[in-house]
């Protein structure tokens, strides 16, 4: 099968996935105790006010009717209005999701930049001091809670040393990137630790494989062997792991965004679940699902490139 065909097949597979997500998120958010009206009005809500709000947003209509309206909205690209913020959901997603995507991307790049070289060093110095130190350091990074690590970075590099701003999102893209450095590092460390361990193990396997020994025996230079044979083959499983980790990374963004006061999609999601803001939860979940699916697709393509057997 050619690459365009493979791509088309994978994109088609997305459709049923997204439909399933649509149904599940619509049902799940309604299975939670409480409803938008009580969440909006809180403890002092009077019955008449709750009924009025449910009527205004159509939450008093039969569930199948609500689902029909939701599907029709999604198909026309309209995700409805937020019940708590009274603005279009699409606008909220457009404002908040790019920040989270940027944060996730930065974290992903940082974790790869940390994991790949260190995995090599660790693997090639297997069971020696450097290996132990690298693995030890990452063990600490992996086991430290994200909010705690974030606060330490904020206190030391933000408040004490003044190298970075103490949270917030700044003005403009460059300032935003500057504000995202510490949160991205916070988010990156645990992923870097997982990737590093995985890649280290993979490299050790590959280094001992026959084809590498063969390549060396052909007289290829060490670095060329490392790049063309070892890295490429060792990366296959790590890329898969990396793709799967994007979802986790997005989850970690929730905590990171709270600690660093970044108005991203993670915080929006938490706020809207707490506020039973059905339209926002539905719309945002859908957007995130599309994003994660596309990431999976991208990693699959990358894997196919690394190992052409996969696309066949």
């Amino acid at each position: 099968m050619s690459t365009p065909e493979y791509l088309a097949r994978r994109l088609l597979q997305l459709v049923p996935t997204l439909i399933a997500i649509l149904v599940v998120v619509f049902a799940l958010v309604r299975l939670l105790p409480g409803d938008p009206a009580s969440a909006i009005l809180g403890d002092r809500a009077l019955d008449a006010d709750v009924e009025r709000i449910n009527r205004e947003y159509g939450f008093d209509r039969p569930i199948p009717v609500q689902f029909g309206i939701f599907v029709r909205q999604v198909l026309t690209g309209d995700l409805g209005d937020s019940t708590s913020l009274k603005v279009p959901v699409a606008q909220l997603i457009a404002e908040r999701l790019p920040i989270t995507m940027l944060l996730t991307l930065m974290a992903a790049l940082i974790s790869v930049a940390l994991a790949v070289p260190l995995a090599f060093v660790a693997a090639l110095c297997r069971d020696r001091l450097a290996d132990g130190m690298i693995r030890g350091a990452f063990q600490v990074g992996l086991s430290m809670p994200v909010f705690y690590l974030g606060l330490i970075l904020l206190t030391v590099f933000g408040a004490r040393l003044g190298w970075f701003p103490v949270g917030g999102d700044g003005d403009g893209l460059l300032d935003l990137l500057y504000h995202l450095v510490l949160p991205a590092i916070t988010l990156a460390l645990s992923l870097a630790a997982v990737l590093m361990r995985n890649l280290r193990a993979a490299i050790i396997d590959v280094v001992d494989a026959d084809y590498v020994t063969f390549a060396r025996s052909k007289g290829l230079r060490g670095s060329l062997v490392l790049l063309r044979h070892v890295l490429r083959n060792a990366l296959i499983s790590t890329v898969a792991l990396f793709g799967l980790s994007i979802g986790t990374l997005l989850g970690g963004a929730v905590v990171t965004e709270t600690v660093f006061a970044i108005p991203g999609a993670g915080r929006l999601m938490v706020d809207s679940i707490t506020g039973r803001d059905y339209p926002v939860v539905q719309g945002l979940t859908l957007a995130l699902a599309v994003l994660v699916s596309l990431t999976f697709l991208l990693t699959d393509l990358l894997q196919a490139w690394l190992d052409p057997r996969i696309a066949r």
Binding site: L151, T155, A159, V166, A261
Partner: peptide
Amino acid sequence: FEVIPDDATRILRLQSGE
């Protein structure tokens, strides 16, 4: 108004003069 949901971060930003 800056929205800083985390208590510790809010205090840190005050202490850093931001």
